[in-house]
């Protein structure tokens, strides 16, 4: 296995030769990984399985479109899941403010139609 960083590892499935990516649960939440998987759903078939207690393993099974290179997809996936985790962290930091902005923007005013 090649070490991408101390906590996340790229490798190859020994049985099939498919590219794999190991992500440590301590750094990547389920929502970030699942959202990233969805973003790649038109390009590659991916499998996600737990690997021990603290990691998940993404296996890039096959390309959906003929021009897709699974190794390149894995690299792009890794960058994307990092960004997605940043979004999750940002959301936690700013969720209350976001709720307040929406409430302030859409709370009833005299111009709003009263449906009752």
């Amino acid at each position: 296995m090649t070490q991408l960083s101390s906590d996340h590892l790229i490798g190859t499935d020994p049985a099939t030769g498919n590219p794999t990516l190991l992500l440590k649960k301590a750094y990547f939440e389920q929502t970030a990984v699942m959202k990233t998987l969805r973003l790649f759903s038109d390009r590659a078939m991916c499998q996600i399985l737990p690997e021990g207690e603290d990691k998940v393993k993404i296996t890039f099974l096959s390309a959906i479109k003929p021009c897709v290179d699974l190794d390149a997809i894995r690299h792009e996936f890794y960058i994307t899941v990092i960004d997605q985790q940043v979004r999750e962290d940002l959301l936690k930091k700013t969720l209350d403010i976001q709720k307040t902005i929406y409430a302030a923007a859409f709370l009833p005013t005299s111009n709003v139609v009263d449906w009752r």
């Binding site: 979004r87 930091k93 700013t94 403010i97």
Partner: peptide
């Protein structure tokens, strides 16, 4: 300084 909600793309 407080960070506000935003969207981003690399």
């Amino acid at each position: 300084i407080q960070i506000m909600p935003f969207l981003f793309r690399r």
